[in-house]
Write a protein that binds this DNA or RNA. Sequence first.
RNA 1: GGCGACGUAGCUCAGUUGGUUAGAGCAAUGGCUUCAUAAGCCAUGUGUCGGCGGUUCGAAUCCGCCCGUCGCUACCA
Length: 703
Amino acid sequence: MKRQLLVTAALPYANGHIHLGHLVEYLQTDIWVRFQKFRGHRAIYLCADDTHGTAIMIRARQEGRSEEALIADMREHHVRDFAGFDIEFDNYGSTNSPENRRLCGEIWASLRKAGLVVERDVVQLYDVQAGTFLADRFVKGTCPYCGLINQYGDSCDNGHTYSPADLKDPVSTLSGTTPEVRRAPHLFIELEQLHAFLADWIGADDHLQSEVANYLNGHFLGEPLKDWDVSRPAPYFGFEIPDAPGNFWYVWFDAPIGYMASLAEWCVNFGEKFDQWWPKSAADGKSDGKNNDSREIHHFIGKDIQYFHCLFWPGMLKTAGYRLPTKVHIHGFLTVDGEKMAKSKGTFVRAATYLKHLNPSYLRYYYAAKLGPRLEDLDLNLDEFVTKINSDLVGKVVNLASRTAKFVEVTGLSAKYPDDGGLFAGAAAEAEAIAAAYEACDFNQAMRRIMALADRANAYVDQNAPWQLRKDPTQASRMQDVCSVSLNLFRQLAVYLAPVLPRLAAQTGQLLGRPIAHWDEAQSPLCGTPVAKFEHMLTRVEKTQVTEMIEESKEQAPAAVATTPGMPGATPQTSAPAAENADSGAALAAEPLAAQITIDDFTKVDLRVARVVAAEDVAEAKKLLKLTLSLGGDTQRTVFAGIKEAYKPEQLVGRLVVMVANLAPRQMKFGLSEGMVVATGPGGKEVYLLTPDSGAVPGQRVL
RNA sequence: GGCGACGUAGCUCAGUUGGUUAGAGCAAUGGCUUCAUAAGCCAUGUGUCGGCGGUUCGAAUCCGCCCGUCGCUACCA
């Protein structure tokens, strides 16, 4: 049966550049779609830039240009990066499009009609000077419960949560002014009304990987679903809600609808009908994805945005009467050499930087060789990357052509396919198993099977030694036969690898005078056709190329920090830690200066030099060390400091630190903390204690 | 602390509806070959399948507990 597949990858946010982490998803999806097309199904690969939201608005302001100019610029970068990796979208749209506005309106209307929308006031801080409401992370102030200063608008570092309106001494990080408390109506979707439906959908028909269904059941469906705040008061870069003037749809509302908008655009461009691809559900309302026709909808996303795609999105589609996704395929994050990508280590590599140093086919193959159907993180091991490309692609696959093609440049392939001991037939018989692996997104299994075939083919060449036959003119036809077998086995591999390595498929078509256009071409050998002059198809990777790429990524780090944590459309690692190794504006940009204070304000904080006289691990705590600090004489303080990941207790004993000595004591699970030590850094392993220069003694005040 | 995933050769991983001596690739070692992008072929080794206990005629595979790693979450910073 010929299937019709609508396939999407998550929409990259227009606030950051594409990097190797994103590419896991776009390549995984590209390979899958190419595979489907190659098998003769109708498939389209849709994507778009995700363009709305506060982060874009603020950044555009900072850069002194319009949001439209900003997103147009980023779009250009994204499109170029994707093309550089042979990622072939059928349509690349934007959430800031008329189609999207229209579809948002339509879906919104059905949510209204279904009685899912409720209005409720939200108390928020308003920056009069900037003329905008402040999201929690744009406000800083003092915790109303514990007096901790410099805290975000929703919760303090001591774990108290509160409304931003309760924050003491609030300051807008946008303007440095004191914001006003304003009340604004927000619109919420009562997702709980769809609870039963969602629980059913999540558990049914293989819509989700089992581990995902499991996670959602455990984390969300066990209790009532919370209302979803989908509106933002002006100003906001997005679409104004037609029946709620002055309010805009929250970016996560219009982002997934962007899939549909991209489809709509594609339909216009190619004269297709929208509802042929994204049909309305049956009249009985059973939009459960298991419709009896051959139309399928597949979303590929990262594990960070499961929540939106597996709860809100099905809920919206269901309510609007659209067909639900056939499957949401969820992948893990990328690590490099076993660790989270880090700008400081140069492992946060932009797509464009990679392309300066390395061939995109390498990454396509490497990811394919590592990707499985499950939600697992994928490790890019740089040494393995080099050996795998060289040994698999160059040593095994391409070598098959390069070691035999030139022997038959003159004669072409044998007129009749020779006896190869069943090798070609055997490899042809693998087609379905390999296809099944691709279909299941088990690319690593597909690659393993293909490489096993490559091994057999190389053994054949070795046993039949065409270079020996060549020396004996009476063996000319035998030699041609052997090379014909070898090249046909090679071509078979190129067919199987075509979804992953489209360039290799094209080159093979060139070499053997016949384009590779369909999966089934692995079923029958070429005979009696000419062979072109062999040209190198893929060069070996040198470790130095990889090293240079990493080095350049280190240098580039400061410029690449613009991404905003946790924003919509986020594919993996858009929320990677900010760079902190260079004197760029990154750290400052990540945390703008607090409002001005007077010297009196400052002297309220009594900072003192203290010596660590004892430090012990708090075994049950993940982050805490228990420090005993001496302020000189008999005065000692116990402080629990969240520096466990960064320091070992024995490293600390004896050293001087700076502590906040007049901080209100705080009862913690493990004891009373009587102050805090001063440190900087983003947290986790990257915490840096402050130390006075030598000469300072405990008890001295820091001013 | 809670939830989840994972833990198989030096490395990356495959393998579980329970069934004979546990696999692949890479790396390593020895040999062969020299057509090929210092490519290829053959041979070889290694594993208490994280640990303990249970179910079973039989467990890497099922169950329980424990340990470790990672993620989310809580507490906390």
